[in-house]
């Protein structure tokens, strides 16, 4: 949407905040992937650091605990030589006392240059980006069921490394689309990068209304949905979803939508299997697939660092460039 675009890009079209994939032009997504490619070599250095963000302060502002995601952002920031401060605020304590806005003002007063935000409410990163001072960048590390754009970009990076191009690919996203911020960002990224087809597969209880308007085809059957697919993206099934009566049991879910070697055989022979992690073995994916030759799940984790470095460097650099102009 235009709103997203206005907020995320500077006047001269550089990436200022990274809140959502939606609304970003293809060229920006490609520049993230290209820049990330450049950062992959840093891991080979004996000093695994580049001095790009030396003297900058990055605050990891996590209102929803996630050690994994926070750690990858922290590693990315440190490899860019930035100073990193971690703030874990459980929403319960936040609601007791100061408002989100107050928390933000306080941290901003400590000369913060970037916020990496995770929050359980959709739109939280967007809200924060609207509030921060002009020199501060905001990166969305996951907001509610809305977006998780860096995860989507590392998935695109992984796909590009395997196939080289996006145009001929058929991609299937399987599982709990209803609650998945990752899936929404992936869909926007895949359609912006113009893959051949994006499919979503799941029971009707987990496929949100009107998702077809995001440019995807909806399937409720794995066999039909996986046919001729190049990339299979499995989504994590949150255990707590069972209490909401979205599925009757993990067992029955696995029977219908679990990715087994037999089901994977419906896809193209060279198809890769992805998962944003952490995986539930035996719930959404069989161990034989998760650990199998077609799985690129660990590559995704590795690529996550370079992609996050790229997003941090690009957003921080945009203000600098703006000042020059």
């Amino acid at each position: 949407m235009n709103h997203h675009r206005r907020l995320q890009l500077t006047k001269d079209g550089r990436l200022r905040h990274f809140i959502a994939i939606e609304g970003l032009p293809r060229a920006i997504l490609m520049s993230i992937l290209d820049t990330a490619e450049g950062f992959t070599s840093v891991a080979n250095q004996s000093v695994k650091k580049v001095p790009l963000l030396r003297g900058k302060t990055i605050v990891n502002l996590f209102f929803e605990s996630s050690t994994r995601t926070r750690t990858t952002f922290e590693v990315a920031a440190k490899r860019l030589s930035a100073d990193v401060i971690n703030f874990n605020i459980s929403t319960s304590s936040a609601s007791k006392g100061e408002s989100l806005l107050d928390t933000l003002r306080n941290l901003e007063a400590m000369q913060t240059d970037m916020f990496v935000v995770r929050h359980d409410a959709s739109g939280a990163a967007h809200f924060i980006a609207q509030q921060v001072a002009p020199h501060v960048s905001v990166i969305n590390a996951g907001d509610g069921c809305h977006a998780h754009p860096t995860q989507a970009m590392l998935d695109m990076f992984t796909i590009r490394r395997h196939f080289g191009e996006f145009a001929p690919l058929n991609v299937a996203i399987v599982g709990d689309l209803l609650h998945s911020r990752v899936a929404r960002s992936q869909i926007h990224a895949l359609t912006t990068l113009q893959v051949n087809e994006v499919r979503v597969i799941g029971p009707k209880t987990l496929i949100p209304k009107g998702i077809d308007q995001m440019g995807v085809h909806v399937y409720h059957d794995m066999r039909a949905g996986l046919r001729d697919v190049d990339v299979v993206i499995m989504l994590r099934l949150q255990r707590e979803r069972m209490h909401g009566a979205f599925i009757p049991s993990e067992h029955e879910y696995f029977q219908s939508y679990g990715l087994t070697p037999e089901r994977l055989a419906y896809a193209k022979p060279h198809a890769i299997v992805m998962h944003p992690g952490p995986i539930n073995r035996g719930v959404e994916i069989d161990s034989a697939v998760a650990d199998g030759a077609q799985s690129v799940i660990l590559e995704q984790v590795t690529n996550g660092i370079a992609v996050r470095m790229a997003v941090m460097a690009l957003t921080m650099g945009s203000y600098a460039a703006q000042g020059e102009a």
Binding site: E22, G123, C145, G210, M214
Partner: peptide, 13 residues
Amino acid sequence: HEGAISTRLGLVG
């Protein structure tokens, strides 16, 4: 409202 917009924004419809 539950529909394409709530889905896009990730809001409970």
